[in-house]
Design a protein around this nucleic acid. Structure first.
Lengths: 124, 124
DNA sequence: AAATTATTTCAATAACTATTGAAATATCTC
DNA sequence: GAGATATTTCAATAGTTATTGAAATAATTT
């Protein structure tokens, strides 16, 4: 996955309703589910839903097919996998280990009360 | 990591400049780098940069400390790790395997030319 | 072929986001 | 403490995004 695709996927998922929609479709599995069922489950207006589906689709995160008068949307697991791979490679320097909390070399040295004021607190 | 934090992290990373900033800080390592150096590297106005740093910081993706007149920003690898974990759990049903391309049970059955038109193409 | 169901399209709008220029603050050096 | 350097704050603005209501399309049922 290249940067523009990763950015598109992040933007698509970085929204309340769309994250819900995608998670619901992930649960639904490869078979996917009809737009109406998603609308019912998440209590969204059908036109609002179309708007979000379009964005998820542009980002390559879902597919649609028609079944009678229903549109069946399904999660593209490969896309999520590619996003996770991108984040692991580019934002953890290749290994997720990198992202774990840093190990202290030794316990922090004890400090007398009179010295405490000297020690700068890291800003937030 | 809970949903609101994941959403915040996604939103923070879903922006051109911020994704660059974060990737640069990941490269820079635990030591981090001064705001000015980031500004030079990415050719961003200092006030624009402050705006983006604030957002990354709100999302818990970076930390700051002051060093003289410089502000040193550093990536919080734990946050990225937590985001990847969240996506793996919630958007791949727990195992990243889930996200790999589906395996075909068998090779698709051959079809005579005269039958092709019958077969519905999935929409997009 | 009219009515019904499922979804999309379109236009309007409110809310949010990123960028800019100018001014302020904080720290350091002379 | 005056001047220089590093960064932040503030206000204005242009651009983007999500939601809504009304109307259109598409497939099914009667």
């Amino acid at each position: 996955m290249k940067r523009p695709d990763a950015l598109a996927a992040l933007a698509a998922l970085a929204q309340d309703n769309r994250l819900d929609i995608f998670r619901l479709l992930v649960e639904a599995g490869r078979a996917g589910m009809p737009a109406g069922a998603v609308a019912d489950a998440l209590d969204l207006a059908p036109n609002t839903l179309t708007f979000h589906f379009d964005r998820l689709r542009d980002a390559g995160l879902v597919t649609v097919r028609r079944d009678g008068r229903s549109m069946i949307y399904a999660a593209r697991y490969e896309a999520m996998n590619a996003l996770i791979a991108y984040l692991t490679e580019n934002c953890c320097r290749g290994n997720p280990e990198q992202c774990l909390p840093v190990k202290r070399e030794s316990a922090p040295r004890k400090v007398r009360k009179s010295q405490r004021a000297q020690i700068a607190e890291p800003v937030s």
